[in-house]
């Protein structure tokens, strides 16, 4: 494996091996070992053309625990939103000898453009591209679900997951639908019809407009951030109405199955898609998702970078 651009780049055994590797790395980092020499001498660039402190910090911590040298390149908005700059930036990173680029970008497909171009030769990790995918988030979500609810198996067979909210614009949803279904979970997408893409019938998931009918039957409720500006684009009438039908509050949480968990990729809009009580409840594994994010991203960097160049692409 050379790049991680989309969950579609992984087959089931590769996905499971990343999760297993993350488990071992979590165990190592839980103990006395805070720093591993594994990627000593490797340079990893965090290229963030869009604000995302949490994802950047998570990748930075992961890289540093593996002893890689980390360069943060944050170029929000204008300078990197023009294509020639992406090319020029990539060529600069190549000249600096970057072994991997972790890229967050507002344009769907930006990570793939970087990987497919001949502008640079390092590995590319997609840390969120536009409304396309966010594979490391899906892997950490799957890792968290498996840790809490996995019935001893390596995959998620037998589990039901509801993903609730702005599916249309969500890269987290796209990656999770692919990954969770590949790992054997049954995925239900819950949203107003305006926030579901045309063509969703081809996705490996079922669709519901009725959150209340879905809640009692799922093991995981994954809430997605709803951006306020969607209202001006007529996706829903106002925040109050959205919250009434698609928000997760204590009443709805009370209908959840015993042992079912609440997830959110963050950052949360407390009071809009999720109430403060739910976010802070015992069912919520939201802060644990953040913790697991570091182990999963260590595993991703390990898989992409620890091996030798000669053998890349084998298997």
């Amino acid at each position: 494996m050379r790049h991680l651009l989309s969950i579609a780049d992984l087959n089931k055994s590769e996905a499971i091996s990343i999760l297993d590797t993350a488990s071992e790395l979590a165990r190592v980092s839980d103990g006395a070992v805070k720093k591993l020499p594994t990627l000593r001498g490797r340079t990893i660039v965090n290229l963030f053309a869009e604000d995302s402190t949490r994802t950047r910090i998570s990748f930075e911590a992961a890289a540093k625990r593996l002893s890689a040298d980390v360069i943060n390149f944050s170029a929000k908005g204008s300078s990197l939103s023009k294509g020639e700059s992406l090319k020029d930036t990539a060529m600069t990173l190549q000249a600096m000898g970057a072994d991997a680029v972790v890229i967050r970008h507002p344009a769907s497909g930006a990570a793939q453009r970087l990987a497919d171009s001949h502008w640079m030769s390092g590995s590319v990790v997609n840390a969120g591209d536009g409304t396309h995918e966010h594979p490391s988030q899906a892997l950490l979500d799957a890792f968290t679900i498996r840790k809490h609810l996995g019935m001893g198996g390596s995959d998620l067979t037998g589990l039901s997951v509801a993903i609730v909210g702005d599916i249309l614009h969500s890269r987290v949803a796209r990656s999770n639908v692919l990954l969770l279904s590949m790992l054997g979970a049954k995925v239900t997408l819950v949203a107003p019809p305006t926030l579901l893409p045309v063509g969703i019938d081809s996705w490996p998931a079922t669709v519901s407009y009725d959150f209340d009918s879905v809640i009692p039957h799922v093991d995981v409720v994954m809430m997605l951030r709803v951006q306020q500006e969607r209202m001006s684009d007529l996706f829903f009438p106002n925040a109050r109405e959205y919250s009434r039908y698609f928000g997760l509050n204590t009443d709805r949480m009370a209908c959840m199955k015993k042992g079912a968990i609440v997830m959110h990729p963050g950052p949360m809009n407390r009071g809009l898609e999720i109430s403060a009580e739910v976010a802070d409840s015992a069912r919520s594994v939201i802060t644990e998702q953040v913790t697991n994010g570091v182990s999963v991203r260590m595993a991703i960097l390990y898989v992409l970078l620890a091996g030798g160049a000669l053998e890349v692409g084998s298997n």
Binding site: G109, D129, G130, R174, V198, G199, S202
Partner: peptide, 8 residues
């Protein structure tokens, strides 16, 4: 477009 996250 649904898969690629490109506006339809």
């Amino acid at each position: 477009s649904a898969r690629l996250g490109l506006k339809g």
